[in-house]
Design a protein around this nucleic acid. Structure first.
Lengths: 110, 110
DNA sequence: GTCTAATGCCTAAGACTATTATGTATTAGG
DNA sequence: CCTAATACATAATAGTCTTAGGCATTAGAC
């Protein structure tokens, strides 16, 4: 597990990117997918994820559909057109940041 | 300039790494060096840097010497032995984080 | 059959970090 | 002479996430 402070500011971008690649997803599914992609290193906490999803929805970046699976509820999130263009920006920004940090730290990413 | 939230949690590591590579440095010099290394993208603010330096000093990670250059004061910071081992940890941690993020975002770092 | 872990949603209080806004002072250059 | 750069520093505030709750369903182990 990574030092949590490093994650700050990256949550939105991670969520948007995963949604872009997988289309329609629900909250719990996102946490599991990120866990998998990061090899258990990024464990999104619910206290961070759900407020973030709600915020993105309120801003028109995501839209939702609720489904009942048995008696259990699932809330699916999808990128809106506005969301799709935001993903590109955010990913580009974080990519650039990663490259900058790599330079500063003189990291060799084999 | 990068979105400031991304920097959160990386400041200490950046400072420690720069100090490791350059030895004895003062605050203003650190901001300039990081600015240069990051191609103007990381501009450390004084409100973040000085408290961070003071904290690291209080923790025994850095030690200081004050010099007078004319009538102007310079406070030089150097890594303590404890600080040197911390740098390795922190850089390793941030490097690992960068790699993880690269995987999650499927970034190609040429 | 019961108990636990996993699934699935959510909010609120608090911690932590950095930004923004100041304040003080010296020095170089137009 | 005045401005930008150098050089230190602190305080109030904003923003993000962690921690700690709360509620409910379902699958699997014993």
């Amino acid at each position: 597990m990574h030092s949590p402070e490093l994650l700050k500011g990256t949550l939105q971008t991670i969520v948007l990117k995963v949604l872009k690649d997988h289309g329609r997803m629900y909250g719990y599914e996102i946490t599991q997918r990120v866990k998998e992609l990061s090899d258990e290193r990024i464990l999104l906490t619910e206290g961070a994820l759900y407020p973030a999803l709600h915020k993105l929805e309120a801003e028109g970046i995501l839209k939702t559909e609720t489904e009942n699976i048995g008696k259990r509820i699932r809330k699916y999130y999808t990128l809106t057109p506005q969301g799709k263009s935001l993903v590109k920006e955010r990913v580009a920004e974080l990519t650039d940041f990663i490259k900058t940090m790599s330079n500063v730290l003189q990291v060799k990413l084999a």
